[in-house]
Structures are given as structure tokens and as C-alpha cells.
Design a protein around this nucleic acid. Structure first.
Lengths: 242, 242, 242, 242
DNA sequence: TATGAATGAGTATTCATTCAT
DNA sequence: TATGAATGAATACTCATTCAT
């Protein structure tokens, strides 16, 4: 079953199935019929079963792939300077990338109920990578010291639910910004300013920390949630130049 | 359909069905087969349908009942002094009472996807009651002013997810306490002290604000999360005495 | 169970049920739920069962009532002069009165399949009365001699089906008039003139033989399908006067 | 869904299902459970659903198949000489082939109530083919001119009901012969002679017009209902020889 | 006695999985 | 090997009939 041992057409089909499953699961969650996935992949259900022993296994595979992606990103960021900003930016990014992903929600839900375990190894890898980011941010004094990796994972989970709930009614990232605040070490002025009312500008949030940026409805859209992030971005640019 | 107008046997069975449905839905969510509910209630499926026109209606009834309970509580608390503590305590209580309740989660999930609306009226009542609590807590300077009722509802939703996730691994209320911090106005020392490691003592949290109380493993269990709440409780006692 | 042995309220309820059943069965046929009948009668289903041992029995009772009515009418007409006109008029009337009656159709249908026998006695009475009318009409030379009572009963059945089918698209009685022609002894001009196109005037047909009357769209609507029937009606009036 | 594009096993099963459905529906009408059909076909219910999206669709398919058969026959006959005989023979054949067919009755019944439409196209084709036969028979002076295609369709419907009713008690086609008489132009001697009493010989009727043939209980069974048809058959033979 | 609540068998339909082609 | 057809268990809902109130 290892990909490299397959004939080229089998390898291609495996990829097609995986990609179709990913998109189908992301849109409709575990409830999507397996036949729908096969149709999207342009293969028969039998072919799906040739590559994955059960629907659950296929689901696991797609979720695992996604989590692995997050793990890789976290590892890359582990070396970055400014651990605090990196940490918050990372959380925001994960939530943003997962908010529309019903597969992840279902996986987390099922995992919480013990019905499903994506992959002990993959989960552990993610946890480890997240742990590194968290620890650095705590050491740099940006994140309170009484939270642990499990807390952050739970917060991520909660943010997904919340972003789903607020949905179209609020700018993306608003709830995430709120949760991030609960992790920050209390310092003068380090609270995200939440926009009041419904805002549609700058929906991707602060380019540094991912927090929602409140701002005037006119003029050039703000790129940073505040002076702190602008300064950080500046320092990064300086260093990059050499 | 009003309970008081029913024959005694019907009233009894209606209650049995409702109770069976509540427990079944709370444990397994909407996915529980209707036949299972009938079996738990000790009646035939036809009896369930006599009292509720569809599975959805039955589900709605159980959820609505629960939400109404929350609304009543919120209304009672609306008159209490110390709006900040009351507000946080209330959030903690709602989460605590809903954390094991898969029915509520499914309802919120379905509601978020527009598949299901428990009852526009009941939902609005709850929102209004929550709004009152929130507004008072904001006026008293305990809650930041840039969050609105929808934010708090989303936060509740997220806390449910998080508490489910952390499950047995962490003291109940830990995630909720964290979330509450994100709502607090930043003042010196008003951050909840989260316990480090897994704790099982005092699982109901601070009797004033519901936040998790960290404490020594020995000695008399702490009733308050900190000095602020102890002082508040004291003032309450003094006032009550006259 | 005999009506005269019941208490007055029971007798009243029996009548209510029977009447409700009649209307319900006539509108919707055997498929109507028994609960619907009970509701129409303003009683509980238990009461229906008190008076009739099964849904089938109730159905039978309503159908039998209707057939008995037809039998009585046939007996009264058995003495009338002009047996030919009376015979055809009777057939038309029976069809007209039964065309909207889904109960009768279902009964005949079920009877044809041997699933249901309304009541041997009642059916036999009807057959006998019809036989008398038929025989007289054959003796008077108006009806061909090679048809028997069973044929006529089948024709009645067929006419019901046909009238149902043509439904709103054609004047009531058109198909019946056509079928009656097949029974007539062939004589010069004794064929019904069928209206061409869709007609809505004079929908009850010739007052003597029930055949469709074709006619001008304006002016006084014709009462007779032709001269023969007009003359017959005249003779009747003369005799009635004495 | 086109049979020729299916795999051999699917094609075989589709045919089995269709055949099982046809026989089941013909015997018991729409009321037959789908599971019964699956059992008769020797397949699972899922297989039935693979080929037909719903019970109704399957029903429609069987009925449509049958009607199409009638349409094809009518088209073939449209070129035949002797339009009158052909017309009557055709009616008799349709009734004979449908008399035991509860599916058709249910379809017509449901269609009359607007609950069901087999297929607008198929129905229209049949109507058109029948129209051709009727018009030719009217032009040749064999059928009265004041009936239209709808009348004939209704008559067909009625004959089905009647033949069902007379059932085993009478020779097949007796009621149909009667109906045909109602359509004939009145000419000296063109009335079918109905057999008196119950007859079982020659149940397929006159080979020319399909009308019942009455005859002696002994001797060579009559092939024609009378001299007129015998003569027609003779002329046909002469012409065929050239 | 009347009521109407309880019963539970019956049915259309879906879909994960297996297996013939 | 890929296909997609077959399988059959599972489930919401209806309604004739029985029986407690």
C-alpha cells in the first residue's frame, strides 16, 4: 500500500482519491457519502477501497495530511525571532485555514469522544511543534506561563467552533483575536482592539499577529493591528535586508 | 399538547419520553435513533410520535427546555449586585451544565449551518437575558466594552467545544476561565490563576466567578479564585445581614 | 349491536360515525385513516370500534347503505310505465350519484378481486331489483335481449370508471350515454346524439333517459335528448293528471 | 441508464427487476411492497434502487413499457386495409392484454386523480396512434363520428374495469364487444351477437374484430363473429394472394 | 360507556462495504 | 487492476387495533 510500490496509474488514482476526499470532507464533513468522493475522483468506489481499507481510514488520511502541513509550518516558525508575534500569528493562521474545514471539526469532535484517533504519531508531532512555539513565546514573556500545550490545542479547537458560529456575521478572526488576548501576558496596551459593528475590510487581519484590525471605513486599509506589530514588522524588514 | 390538559397516563408517558429523549440526545446527539429513545422511555415508537410530530420536534423540545432554564437563571441574576462576578459566574455555570450535553452542541452546530432553528423566540429570549447581564458587567467596568452579545454567545459555544475536548484530562472550567480572561477589563491582578498540572479538587470552581481555582493539594479546598472574589463574597454577606 | 338495543347516546354516536364514515369514504376511499373518520364524527377511535368491529366492517356498512338506497329506488321504478325510458334513466342516475363516490369504486374493485364482499344479501337484492327493470325493458323491446343482469352491473361499474376518468373534461353522463347505446335495440334513430366538443350546459342530461343532451350554446337549455323522450314525458304527464 | 451501456450482470439484473416489478405490479398494483419485488427478482432492495430511483419510477417504467407496446401495435395497424375491423380488433386486443393488469388500472386511476403521470410523451404517443386508428375507422363509415379519442380512451379504461369485474364469470371480451357496439355506426345487422349463458369456447373472440363469438358447444369452433367478418377475412386473403 | 393513548408491525429509502465483471 | 453493481442492515414514520383511564 505504500505509494512508492504502486504502479504509476495506481499512484495517480490514489492521489486523485485523496484529493477528492479532502475537498469533499472539508466541505461536508464525515457525513459525505463515499460514493460522492468516488464520483469526484472519477473512479469507482471499489478503487477507493483498494487504496484505503475503510471510509474512516480515508478520512484519517486526509486529516493527517492537513495536520502534517500545520506541523511543518510550526517547525519552520520555531526558529523565527520574535516568538510572541510568531506564536499568535500562527494560531490565527491555523484557525483561518481550518475555519471552513468541516473535516477537521468532525475529526476533533470524534477524537474528543474517543471514536476516532487520527494518528497518534501525527498528533504527537503537531503537539510537539506547537509546544516549541508556545514555550518560546512564554520565555520571551509574551504568553502567560500557566497555560500548557493542551490548553492551546483546546483553544484552537474552540476558535474553530466560534469562527464557524459567528460565520458571515463577523469579520474573520474576531473570535480568534479575543482568545489570543486570554493568552497574552497582561501588559499595558497589549489588548487587541476589536472592531465594533460588522466590518468587512481587511478580513485577513493583522499581517503580523492575525488579530482583527479595526479601522476607519475609508482611507488605506490598516495592515497592522497596532504600533507594536508595525514595529515588529519593521525590525523584520531591517534584519532581512541584512 | 399542553401537559396539564392530558390524561394522567399520557402525561406520564410524555414526561418519560421527554426525559428519555433528553438523556439520549445529551449523550449521543441528534444521531441517536428514535427507536432507542422509545426503548429508553419504555414505550413504542408510535407513542413518541403521538407526543411529538417528528424526531426534530422532539429534539427541539429537549433543547428548548434546556435553553429556557438558562434564560430563567439569567433573568434572576439580572438584579444581583456585583454584575461582573455574576456575569462570569453565569458563563461558567452555563458551560459547566452544557459541557456533557451533545444535544446542545448538535443544535448549535446545526443552527450555525442553518439546518435547524430551535425556536426563534426562545433563542431571542436567551440572547436578551444574556445581553442584560453583559451590559451591566460592562457598565460596572468588569468587562471590556468592545464585545457584544453575539461575541459572548460564540464564546459560550467555543467553551463547550473546548471543555469537551479537554474532557477528563483537565479540571472542568479551566478553558472557561481562560476565556473569561479575554473578556475582562485589564486591571492589575485580575487574571485568573490557572492551576498547573491536572487537578481534581474543587471542580466547580470559584464560588463567585466560576473560574478554576488553583490550590494546594492538601488543606482546606479554596472557595475563591483570589482575594478579589473573597472580598466580594464578604461584601455580599455583610449586605445580606442588613 | 342492533341499533334499537342501544342507549340513546350510543345510538346517536353510531349514526354520527356512520355519517362521518360515509362522507370520508366517499371522498377518499378505503385509504382514509380510521382516525380521520373518528375526528369527523367527533368521537374517539375507540368509539368507532365499539360500534363496528373493524374498519372493513364500517366500510361495508356505508357501502351497503348506499346500495340499499339504489335497490329501493329500483323497486319503486319497477312499477312505472315506459320500462325502456325508466331503465336507461335509472342507469344514468345510479352512475351520476356514484361517480364522485370513491367508496363505491373501491368496494367494487375489492369485490372484483374477491377481497371484499359488501353483503351477499344486499347485493342480491340489488341484483334482483335491477333484473326486474332490465327484464321489463327487454320485454318492451327497448333493450337487446342478449344481455343479462351481470352485464348491466358490469356496465354500471365501467361507467363509474369512465366518468371518473373523463372527469372535468367532459359533460357528466357522456360516457354513460355512450354505453347505454350499446344496450339499445337498434332502431332507426334511437342512438343518443353526443355533443361534440366540451359542453357545460345541461350537465345532468336528458331528464327522461339521462343521456347527454347536445344543444345550442344559446337559448333555453334542452330538457330532452330528442323527440322520443319528449313524447314519453308528455304521456307521463297526461297519465299523472289522470 | 440505457440498457445497452450496462455491464452484463447489471443488464441481467435490471431485466430481472423490471420483469419482477411488472409481474408484481400487474398482480397486486402499486400496493405491492418494493421488498416483494426485490425478492421476486432475487436481488436486494438496494439493487432495485440502483436501477430505479424510486418505487414510483419503477412503476412508471413498467407501465410505460406496456403502453409503448400498445402504441407500436397501433402504428403498425395504421396502414392496414379495412380500418373498421382493425379498429375494433385493436380495442379488443388492448383490453384483453390489460384486463388482468392491476398496474395499468392503478396507473389510470392515479392519473385520473392527478397523482401520477406515467410519461406525458408516452401517453401522447399512444393517444396519437389511437387517434389515427379512430379517424380512419370513422372515415370508412364504421365508427360513429360524434366520439373523439378521449372517449375511446375512457371506454378502454371502462372496459378494463368491466372485464375485471365480470372476471371468471363471463367469457373474456364480452363487455368489450358490448362497448364496441356503442361505437358502431348503426347499420342493419352490425350488432355483435353476444353469447347467452357462460361460454368458455373460443375465448379469444372473433379473429377479425375481437368480439365474442357465440357458438354451439359442439362442432368446429367459430372463427368469426358473423358473416360480415368472415367476408372481410376472405377479401383480405384474396388481396394477400395478389 | 366514551375517550384517546399506546402499541408495533410494516415500508421506502440510504449507504458502507463486498465482489463479479 | 479498475469498475461499478449488489448487498442488506439500519431508520423515520404511519396507522389499524387494543386497552387503560
Amino acid at each position: 500500500m505504500a505509494p512508492e510500490s504502486l504502479r504509476s496509474d495506481a499512484r495517480r488514482n490514489r492521489a486523485l482519491v485523496l484529493e477528492a476526499a479532502r475537498s469533499a470532507f472539508e466541505e461536508r464533513g464525515l457525513a459525505v457519502p463515499l460514493g460522492e468522493i468516488a464520483r469526484r475522483a472519477g473512479v469507482g468506489p471499489g478503487t477507493v477501497y483498494r487504496h484505503f481499507p475503510s471510509k474512516d481510514a480515508l478520512f484519517r488520511a486526509t486529516v493527517v495530511d492537513r495536520i502534517r502541513l500545520f506541523t511543518y509550518t510550526a517547525r519552520e516558525l520555531a526558529e523565527a525571532s520574535d516568538p510572541g508575534a510568531v506564536f499568535f500569528r500562527y494560531l490565527a493562521a491555523v484557525v483561518r485555514l481550518s475555519a471552513r474545514n468541516k473535516a477537521l471539526q468532525d475529526a476533533l469532535e470524534a477524537s474528543a469522544e474517543g471514536r476516532f484517533r487520527p494518528s497518534a504519531e501525527v498528533e504527537e508531532d503537531f503537539r510537539a511543534a506547537l509546544h516549541t512555539l508556545l514555550t518560546r513565546a512564554q520565555k520571551s514573556g509574551d504568553v502567560r506561563k500557566d497555560v500548557d500545550t493542551e490548553d492551546v490545542m483546546a483553544l484552537l479547537f474552540g476558535c474553530l467552533s466560534m469562527e464557524r458560529r459567528r460565520g458571515a456575521g463577523a469579520p474573520a478572526g474576531r473570535m480568534t483575536a479575543l482568545m489570543c488576548d486570554s493568552l497574552r501576558v497582561r501588559r499595558r496596551g497589549n489588548v487587541t482592539k476589536l472592531p465594533v459593528g460588522s466590518v468587512s475590510r481587511n478580513e485577513t487581519g493583522c499581517v503580523v499577529c492575525g488579530a482583527a484590525v479595526g479601522g476607519a471605513r475609508t482611507g488605506r486599509p490598516a495592515r497592522y493591528c497596532g504600533g507594536a506589530c508595525r514595529q515588529r514588522a519593521h525590525r523584520e524588514r531591517v534584519r532581512a535586508r541584512g
